[in-house]
Nucleic acid binder design. Sequence first.
DNA 1: ATGCCGGGCGAAGCCCGA
Length: 261
Amino acid sequence: MPIKIASWNVNSIKIRAETVADWLREAQPDVLCLQELKCEDRNFPQTIFEDLGYNLALYGQKTYNGVAILSKWPISDISRGLPTFADDDQSRYIEAVIGLPNTAARVASIYLPNGNPPDSAKFDYKLRWISALRDHAANLLAYEEPLILAGDYNVILSEADVHDPEAWREDALFRIESRHGLRSLLHLGLRDAIRLCSDEPGLYTFWDYQAGAWQKNNGIRIDHLLLSPEAAGRLRRAGIDKYVRGREKPSDHVPVWASLH
DNA sequence: ATGCCGGGCGAAGCCCGA
């Protein structure tokens, strides 16, 4: 059963609802993980997505953060927040089981903290959050089932994933502590879907609104789909829908997707 | 070049993102 799953930081779902709906009609993913809703659940523009045939699992928040899972297949076992991070007051993690015709896949939508500046409590929060995510991922991997951890990780894994590495060297997204944190998830056995399909440099998912970053292709790759071995074994293709960044009123991130059979 | 854009909140200007 082929399934296409995508992740997209939309930078406000209320502003971006029509943009997201347009892309859903074009790309036809079975599952879309959203981040940075900046919206409480009761204000989520749900009918526009329900009309396109999607079920919704929401974990919103006013002004900041907020994550969701949209699925054409039934959604069950929804859980909100990382169970390994007690008292997190930010909506950054939602997980659910997607019921496919002959199997099921566990999916999470993740909005990992930015962490800048790196000498602040925000960076400490980022590192603690990654550590909690790793602990939870280790627990989920014990189920030995198709698992997709999708989201905005706010971590650049390697120099191939950033246009100007020196400019980002001391940024919280590229600091070695952040990279080690995300690598620790890979060391559990999770695989980066894009890197299973391509080793070419310059594959980016984010371009800053400022300083002509898009026009100069001054981008970074920080949105990732991490797959359990059971999901990675079914991977057929993965890609980044870069063209979306060139449209009117774009998010600064673009969708990243993978198709599994 | 760490606020150049863009969004939220709320009704001007500040907070935040990456």
